[in-house]
Write a protein that binds this DNA or RNA. Structure first.
Lengths: 241, 241
DNA sequence: GGGTGCTATCTGTCTAGACAATTTTCGGTC
DNA sequence: GACCGAAAATTGTCTAGACAGATAGCACCC
């Protein structure tokens, strides 16, 4: 092992081990043998393993060994972790293919969610979100007109919509309310997502609220669970003893 | 400092420091002086501080010192309002009708999620959760044997399983990892949920983890989105400077 | 054959330092 | 007074072990 100067050894070791991770649940070499292989002391090896345990790629079991987790399977970048920012970070690895973008009269149930008077005009954006592996999400977004005015088509395809709204206006998103359901793919949606018609899809209805409590965006998405696993990690509010 | 035996010193030190944390941005004592105060070596102090940095309560600045953050409750990386507890609160208005409860060999994929050696025995509980409006969730729970031993059938039907585990043992649930998908109802599940076979159902695979990071429970649920809407509210974590 | 206890292996915790890198402080120089 | 450099303080990285606790495998005894 040739260590590059200027970079801590434990990070270089962590990188090397991360690269070698293969299947899930497999036992990796013991700390003692890693010491020999990388020619460092055990605390340094442990520091390197700590990095990977922290990333969720490894877990340890006293007396048994250290094992790899499932998080190594190629798609680990494509996972959603339960905070709004992580959902927004989707925009980094995916892009939206715009299908339509127009001003229309908002249907009653959407108007209610956005707290608009019945019969109001609003902006409806329809698109398909793609990842490397292909299209995985059909999304219909409804925006009140004031919000929509600040946005360009470029904003929509290149970044996440929420990020664009925050960049172009003073509005800051604070909470997100989401209702989930399972539905059979409508014909047109199935076509765009390249799945068979009437195959089961996850459907999410999300409403985003600003700091002041005003609804900012309402979105209905259809997505496949297989192609892009919808994964959430929730942490419990901590109670102090 | 009197150390209680059986509990690692670095955790006891972390607890002591956490208790003393006051305002935000304040500099805490240097590692060297903490060594003197707690009568341990510096690596041990650093291990204790690592815990608090990991929790988001402290941050370090080489050459300047270690400072407290604003996070007075919870892990600021993943903040989700009420999700786990909301899910647990299901137990208040619903009840589980037990279908089976037996000790079996754990299938490979479940063993992996629970980090059990392949071929281990575990407890499988199958049931249907009912609300006033009827059955809405088919659940298959897998528990490692040590956890399962502490539970009675009464615990299972009257309350939420998580609440029962926390009441009957020292284990405390900290995080929940959930993967969602949409599937067509298997025949037997459809019967129990009183829906047509092959109608679309939400499927969740959840793994619950204890405070120490060990998996405690793995559950696979099928549920209808209509009869009992699956609703989540996410709040954004404050960003640290 | 089946349990029982020993032993080897492995991770968990901890010691007592060393040197490096970064930042602040302070004194000296111009 | 302004600037610069040295020194001090602080965290970052790393060594070379020690002992404890947990687990699995194996030989042994009944």
């Amino acid at each position: 092992m040739n260590y590059r100067p200027g970079i801590p050894r434990y990070l270089q070791i962590a990188d090397a081990i991360r690269r070698d991770l293969r299947g899930e649940g497999e036992r990796i070499a013991s700390e003692h043998s890693l010491c020999a292989r990388f020619e460092v002391s055990r605390p340094t090896i442990r520091q390197a393993l700590d990095v990977l345990v922290q990333e969720g790629r490894l877990y340890r079991h006293a007396g048994r060994g250290t094992f790899s987790t499932a998080a190594n399977g190629g798609d680990s970048r494509l996972r959603v972790i339960g905070s709004i920012d992580d959902m927004m970070a989707l925009g980094d690895e995916t892009w939206l293919k715009l299908i339509s973008h127009e001003t229309v009269t908002v249907p009653a149930n959407i108007a209610q969610a956005l707290r608009l008077p019945p019969g109001s005009k609003g902006t409806r954006i329809v698109g398909v979100r793609h990842a490397e592996s292909g299209p995985f999400q059909h999304v219909t977004v409804w925006l009140p007109s004031p919000i929509a005015l600040a946005l360009s088509d470029e904003d929509l395809s290149k970044t996440s919509l929420i990020a664009a709204i925050e960049r172009q206006s003073e509005v800051r998103i604070k909470t997100l309310e989401q209702v989930a359901d399972a539905v059979l793919a409508p014909r047109q949606v199935a076509e765009l997502l390249q799945v068979r018609p009437r195959s089961p899809l996850l459907m999410f209805e999300r409403t985003y609220y600003a700091t002041n409590g005003e609804p900012v965006e309402h979105a209905v998405t259809y997505q496949t669970g297989r192609r892009y696993p919808y994964r959430v990690v929730l942490a419990r509010a901590e109670r102090r003893s």
